[in-house]
């Protein structure tokens, strides 16, 4: 099990490194603008004007980031629920055996 834990820790570290190293290397100079926004800027440069507006736009950057956080929270919540249930299902037979012995 310890080897398994080590692999898990290394995987988590590698993911963190992949997203934090760019920040460290960039030294705060880069703006880290979203690629979607860069693409639309490039298109607007060529003189194109969008012909349809979003039916609803978050009124500020704060509201928008809040809604993005909500999306991540819903996804994370559901994912955590599923993984918790799966894990609980695996542990259940063992626990059941234990409580039967201790039961009244």
């Amino acid at each position: 099990m310890t080897r398994r834990r080590l692999v898990t820790a290394l995987l988590v570290l590698a993911v963190l490194a992949l997203v934090t190293l760019p920040l460290a290397l960039g030294g705060g100079e880069a703006g880290y603008a979203g690629t979607d926004g860069q693409a639309t800027a490039a298109i607007e440069e060529s003189g194109y004007t969008p012909w349809f507006e979003s039916v609803f736009s978050p009124s500020s950057a704060e509201v928008e980031s809040g809604l993005f956080a909500l999306q991540a929270a819903i996804g994370g919540g559901v994912l955590g629920y599923v993984l918790g249930r799966l894990r609980g299902r695996r542990a259940a037979p063992r626990d059941a055996g234990r409580t039967e012995d201790a039961g009244p």
């Binding site: 997203v19 190293l21 760019p22 920040l23 290397l25 960039g26 100079e29 880069a30 703006g31 880290y32 603008a33 979203g34 690629t35 979607d36 860069q38 993005f68 956080a69 999306q71 991540a72 819903i74 996804g75 994370g76 919540g77 559901v78 994912l79 629920y81 599923v82 993984l83 249930r85 799966l86």
Partner: peptide, 27 residues
């Protein structure tokens, strides 16, 4: 159904998180 929920939730989380990258932009 449980695993289907996990699959949907996984893409729900990941597509909400914009991360910085080596090019100085984020995605």
């Amino acid at each position: 159904t449980l695993l289907l929920g996990a699959a949907g939730a996984f893409t729900f989380v990941l597509s909400a998180i914009k991360l910085p990258s080596v090019t100085g932009s984020s995605s």
